[in-house]
């Protein structure tokens, strides 16, 4: 979500030139860790804060307050020439855990499947692991197949998927490019296959979507309060749409998790 945070900061500084916002990437864990160490005012995270992190926060005297600032969906992507158009969550899980190794097993051509994933430090990786590979179950200990390629950037994934007809990848809806094909995904075969889009994410029908958060230390005041209020305003949420994320509809006040 670093793209989004950067775009917001840039737009906000145009409106209020006296406010300086610097944004650093590195993953949700980095951001939350920095908030707990007191080095940042706002931590952006594409996952909710973990209970261990709340414990650390308490130890450090930090009181994290949560804001939902946008929504995101993970699209599962293949090469445009791949005849496969839809998969169930179970099939995607089987592909990524190594139970399905050929496209012909899910109705495609006789080609080996090359699995692409974001690096383990990415919030997207963890979210995909929990929601898709383990189908949202805490006791499920399914792993990514060991030969899953871990690529350090979204660009790496789209470059490989748009070039390689064997590849399957996933990434945030915000990173989609026309050179790749998004698959329709169904929670169960009976529940219908849904293509990810702003509508299907907001109405909750697309199964792989999530909230994006900002965390502050305590209820925000002054500049930070003004910034967070601006972020949920229609102007800022327009930027969300522009970047391929999904805007939040309701005004969400800060809450302590």
């Amino acid at each position: 979500m670093v793209n989004l945070a950067l775009a917001w900061a840039e737009a906000y500084q145009k409106i209020k030139p006296d406010v300086r916002i610097s944004v650093t990437g590195g993953g949700s864990g980095t951001g939350i860790a920095a908030l707990l160490n007191g080095t940042v005012s706002i931590a952006n995270a594409s996952r909710a804060i973990k209970s261990e992190e709340i414990d650390t926060a308490k130890k450090n005297g930090v009181d994290p307050v949560e804001f939902v600032v946008a929504r995101d969906a993970i699209a599962v992507i293949v090469h445009p020439k791949n005849p496969v158009n839809r998969l169930t969550l179970q099939q995607i899980s089987d592909i990524y855990s190594g139970n399905i190794n050929n496209w012909s097993e899910v109705g495609g051509e006789n080609r080996p499947i090359v699995r692409l994933s974001r690096e383990t430090n990415s919030g997207t990786h963890v979210y995909f692991l929990e929601t898709v590979l383990r189908l949202g179950s805490k006791d499920n200990k399914t792993f990514f197949s060991m030969d899953t390629l871990l690529l350090p950037s979204s660009e790496g994934i789209t470059a490989e998927v748009s070039d390689n007809p064997n590849a399957i990848g996933y990434d945030g809806l915000g990173y989609m490019v026309p050179e790749v094909k998004m698959l329709a995904v169904a929670k169960e075969a009976a529940s219908g296959f849904i293509i990810p889009s702003a509508e299907t994410v907001n109405d909750g029908t697309y199964p792989i979507s999530r909230d994006l958060y900002m965390y502050t230390n305590g209820q925000p005041v002054n500049e930070i309060k003004a910034y967070l209020e601006w972020i949920i305003s229609p102007t800022a949420q327009e930027i969300v749409t522009k970047l391929g994320f999904v805007p939040v509809k309701s005004t969400s006040a800060g809450s302590t998790p």
Binding site: G26, G27, G29, T30, E119, T120, N121, D147, L149, L150, P152
Partner: peptide, 16 residues
Amino acid sequence: SPIRTMTATIASEMGE
């Protein structure tokens, strides 16, 4: 086949 090196591991994981 794909492989993972020590340097790439340090570089991609140390930040997080």
